[in-house]
Nucleic acid binder design. Sequence first.
DNA 1: GTGAAAGCGCTAACAT
DNA 2: ATGTTAGCGCTTTCAC
Lengths: 346, 346
Amino acid sequence: MAEPPATLRDVANAARVHPATASRALNPETRVLVSDETARRVADAAAALGYRPNPVARSLRTRRSHTIGVLIPDLNNPLFPPMVRGLEDGLTNAGYVALLGNTDGDTGKEQAIFEQMRARHVDGFVLATARAHDPVLAEVARDELPVVLMNRLDPEHDFSSVSVDNEHGMRMSVSHLVALGHTRIAHIAGPRQVSTGEGRRRGYYEGLKTANLDPDEDLIVAAAGFTVEEGVRCCRELLQRHHRDGQARFTAIAVANDMLAVGCFTALDEAGLSCPDDLSLVGFNDMPFVDRLRPPLTTIRFPHYQLGREAAQLLLDQVDRADATAKVLYLEPELVVRGSTGPPRG
Amino acid sequence: MAEPPATLRDVANAARVHPATASRALNPETRVLVSDETARRVADAAAALGYRPNPVARSLRTRRSHTIGVLIPDLNNPLFPPMVRGLEDGLTNAGYVALLGNTDGDTGKEQAIFEQMRARHVDGFVLATARAHDPVLAEVARDELPVVLMNRLDPEHDFSSVSVDNEHGMRMSVSHLVALGHTRIAHIAGPRQVSTGEGRRRGYYEGLKTANLDPDEDLIVAAAGFTVEEGVRCCRELLQRHHRDGQARFTAIAVANDMLAVGCFTALDEAGLSCPDDLSLVGFNDMPFVDRLRPPLTTIRFPHYQLGREAAQLLLDQVDRADATAKVLYLEPELVVRGSTGPPRG
DNA sequence: GTGAAAGCGCTAACAT
DNA sequence: ATGTTAGCGCTTTCAC
């Protein structure tokens, strides 16, 4: 850097006022305390010197870092980039920035990143990683940190949250399959520790019930995580059970998540089965590019970017007013019918 | 928060030493200046009080924010999540965090985000957005800020950078098509203002030359950005020219980027053409999920995560040693043959 | 409406 | 090996 950057002192000297006055003149909140004349002089001096307030010094004084910690499982999951962008756009407008952390579904890593962000004195957290009995949530609750759960819920605390109505979404998924004529509908469920997994599992049961279909535990496999690999594993598992007694035990799978569904495509290819002719598949999330898969994936859509925007707003509410009451927002899901579903064979 | 958090003063009092001693004891770099005995006492006191150093105060004193500004075009482009993760992993290990900014290829936005990050006193920049004659680059050069260009080059300055060998990659793309028997090979080029676009365009010409094929400007269309929409537009444009004289003018397209290639698929569908039977397509980047498209995309791969890791390392070199010399790294590309390429029809 | 004074929490000279 | 002193740049009482 060429010159040492101008400080408030420099501006004050140039404008021939006290630094305190310069501070008041430059800060929109306190501008009214200063005469128009001096305010102008200070502003001119600041402009002339290319003054930029030092946010570090301000933070030290005000104990606000204008920084938000954001924990997500994995940025590589295409679900998250749009959510993160919504979040960042919402935060940026208010002068905040996001610190991003990827936990990879690892509790230890989650804890470590959380601590590291606390150490950096973030003003609040957006958590897209909440699990049942999550120690991070307990700590957030205990210390009353501003927080919003994104795409997650936690029944144990009353945190603000934004998420899709998972039950409703999965009911739509099942209804769609039923309407096509399917009666043996399998489910690849998410992990029970996360609310999206659990909610969609409930929606699956509800959907069957509405259609007067009996649930069959043998048609349900739970994934350990929302990954392509787990999708492959779970689908193989279902196909194996299916083949064991030599006849088609199911004609469709309501899958808890698009990543898992992508894995299913692989497993179907392996088994020489075709989708949707041999087996229909419905995903969940409508993440980017699933409309371009082979076949295009029928799935449940919700507005990812909007979810991030809302999360940002809810968090800023809390950061600005310590007494802000927790709000729980649900975004409505939507069925998107594409090529991966069709009537059952025969 | 329950208690006001413990300060260094509190720790010092509890350990019955001066704050400066406590500071030395707690900081790994200065630990040696303190006797083992007191170091232990201080550490115990810190642990007992749950002391966490205040990074804001430290930053104010040391003028290092341990924060890096990262500018990328758009997180929604699947190319970037792995790169960002590599970057973050590399930075985190060294105690740094990334501040992410999306420019959407908009110069004004780029400038604004850059200023905003400077105001936050980031210790350096990773720029994946560099364009020819970019004013941000000029400012970085003028103020001698630590910087690394990621997936970009800039001939005007000698910045550190990590990128793939674009010429080589595109030569491989063309050779592959030539080996399949194609002789009329079109090119959808990237914007000339970005080094990836320009380098790949050069590689295209070189590839033709190696195969003793004459270039034809009518077979080249330049995209305004690396987006799916531009891919659609450019491919339509090529097809339109092609149809004008009623016979096949080309049988393959070497596309500068996977996003553009995805757009080509759409344009081919519209035109009722099939890939690879009517037209072969080669992308560039091997971004996530292009192996699952219809058809799976033949493309040029390079290690995205690694690119981010290297960029982090190069930047940390500069941040740590102000006299660090600029390093230019090239990662080797690799041809990945999938279903979107085949011999020309007939 | 403006100035004076103090201090946020930490670290780096300097002194002992 | 430890203590003393000072100050990073800003905001906020408290005076006037």
